[in-house]
Design a protein around this nucleic acid. Structure first.
Length: 472
RNA sequence: GCGGCUAUAGUUCAGUUGGUUAGAACGCUUGACUGUGAAUCAAGAGGUCGUGGGUUCAAGUCCCACUAGCCGCCCCA
């Protein structure tokens, strides 16, 4: 334990004003886009009953849940009856099961709240972090997947991302690949772990690890590679040579060609597998339905995407960045048609996606993608205080400007004017309003533009409009 | 959860094989400046060397644990 008691708990963070501004900017864009797609807001408690969460995320997930001990006289039992929520999807499923009759036939909700995982902190990875979820419940149509891809693409484009890829796969396709290759039920989980990282370890690594883990024998692995060797091909990284004169249109076309090439190959390999055929049909539909949406050319079908959360049943999605050094995904999702059924006893089809706020912020900060002025301007104008006698007058001016809708900082002490300017400069406040004895006699205020250094004296009642229409 | 590297003033870093009062640059504070910041000059403040233990006559320097950061696994947002 840190003896320096002022540090936040492990994996948790304090957000200073500049941090909060960045976070709120990103959240604002996300919320605005989600609203535009007809999603409605939902909030749920930080704490859930422990049985609501346990068993929904697989072995690994259970370990990472933040459990809360029973309280008071029951504390000594060492038992946990509550837990901090691990994601926003399971609480959503609980809400839908609880309020089924009050919710519309198709429930589209977004939710932007923190979740907690007892994971090891790393870059872009914390124990308390925000997820920005969109989900649609009540429909099995692939239009839902397409809409979600469109909304996510829209958000990322509006934030200024140019190089993201939505990787798409389908649980049934994965099952098909494994079953057609003769992988036994109990080896399938192992096989998925290896296949999921096939891009990183390459063709040789894929072959080696599949044999090491006993998924295939030395002989049968060749069969597998004959049919599915392409699994090791590029997954999130650049998929094709980008020419000097690269255009989005060119990239989109390349992506579409790559998708159909993959699908054609797989559909002949899986034509004996019912589930696999279904999965391929679903993926084709999602791609078709994205033709005329912001997601066009941004979706990359890739059969090696697996994803760990155990509740997915159909399409699975993950967003990665093409360029740069951030390897982790910045979001993920998929279809989970029987999660609500675990609470309700009756299945409700569902599909959703989650963007990771802090990963987006890590990348945006590194790439300097935040609008200028977001961090640097706590106020539009600072009003100076000339001396003890004039404080009231300064407060009056500040009040007038605030009433006119400006963000106004009032220097709190009757300090030397030089210090007041220095303070405004250091805080990045663009204008300083000086209210000295001379100005007061003339019924004027001196306004200084801190960027250009220009200064002019204006009638007191005109200050707000002059500031608003200031030019150089 | 596992392995490797790192941690010295607000910031970026020096600090020789463990040896007296731990340094620099920039930043910060105060003054020269007349009613005005980012320029120049002068002076000044600021570190129990990430935290806690241990080895030693002696520890920023060696050992251990913890915390944070980077890299690689596992997993994921």
């Amino acid at each position: 334990m840190p003896s320096n008691k002022t540090q936040p708990a492990r994996g948790m963070r304090d957000f200073l004003p500049a941090d909060v501004r960045r976070r709120e900017y990103v959240i604002g864009v996300i919320r605005e886009v989600y609203e535009r797609y007809g999603f409605e807001p939902l909030e749920t408690p930080a704490v859930e009953n422990i049985e609501t969460l346990m068993g929904k995320y697989g072995e690994e997930g259970n370990q990472l849940i933040f459990k809360i001990l029973k309280r008071g006289v029951h504390e000594s039992t060492g038992e946990a009856d509550l837990a901090l929520r691990y994601d926003l999807t399971v609480p959503l499923a609980r809400v839908v099961a609880e309020y089924r009759d009050k919710l519309p036939k198709f429930f589209k909700r977004y939710q932007i709240q923190p979740v907690w995982r007892a994971d090891r902190p790393a870059r872009g990875r914390f124990r308390e972090f925000y997820q920005c979820d969109v989900d649609v419940l009540g429909s099995k149509s692939m239009v839902v997947e397409a809409e979600i891809c469109a909304a996510v693409s829209d958000v990322l484009e509006r934030l200024g991302f140019d190089d993201f890829v939505i990787v798409l796969n389908h649980r049934e396709i994965l099952r098909g690949i494994l079953e057609v290759s003769g992988v036994t039920e109990e080896k399938q989980a192992d096989a998925l772990i290896v296949i999921d990282k096939s891009e990183k370890i390459g063709k040789d690594g894929l072959r080696r690890e599949l044999v090491e883990r006993g998924v295939f024998s030395e002989e049968s692995v060749d069969d597998f590679f004959e049919r599915f060797g392409r699994l090791a091909e590029t997954h999130v990284g650049p998929a094709f040579d980008i020419p000097e004169s690269r255009t989005r249109e060119f990239e989109k076309q390349q992506q579409e060609e790559m998708n159909s090439s993959w699908l054609d190959k797989l559909s002949s390999s899986l034509d004996q597998h019912e589930g696999g055929k279904l999965g391929i049909k679903a993926v084709r539909q999602i791609l078709d339905l994205s033709q005329n949406s912001p997601a066009r050319g941004r979706i990359r079908f890739h059969p090696s995407l697996a994803r760990g959360l155990s509740y997915y049943t159909g399409a699975i999605l993950e967003v990665g960045l093409n360029i740069g050094d951030f390897r982790g995904s910045i979001g993920g999702g998929g279809r989970y048609d029987n999660l609500v059924g675990m609470f309700l006893g009756q299945d409700v089809p569902a599909c959703g996606f989650s963007l990771g706020l802090e990963r987006i912020i890590v990348v945006m900060t590194e790439r300097e993608m935040f609008p200028a002025g977001l961090v640097t301007s706590p106020a539009e104008v600072m009003v100076t205080v000339w001396n003890e006698e004039s404080v009231l007058n300064s407060i009056a001016l500040a009040s007038e400007l605030r009433a006119a809708g400006l963000r106004v900082d009032l220097y709190p002490e009757a300090d030397k004017v030089g210090k007041q300017f220095k303070y405004a400069s250091a805080r990045g406040i663009p204008f300083v309003a000086v209210l000295g004895d001379d100005e007061r006699e003339r019924g004027e205020v001196s306004i200084k533009d801190m960027k250009s250094g220009k200064q002019r004296s204006v009638k007191r009642e005109d200050v707000a409009s002059v500031l608003r229409n200031w030019e150089g």
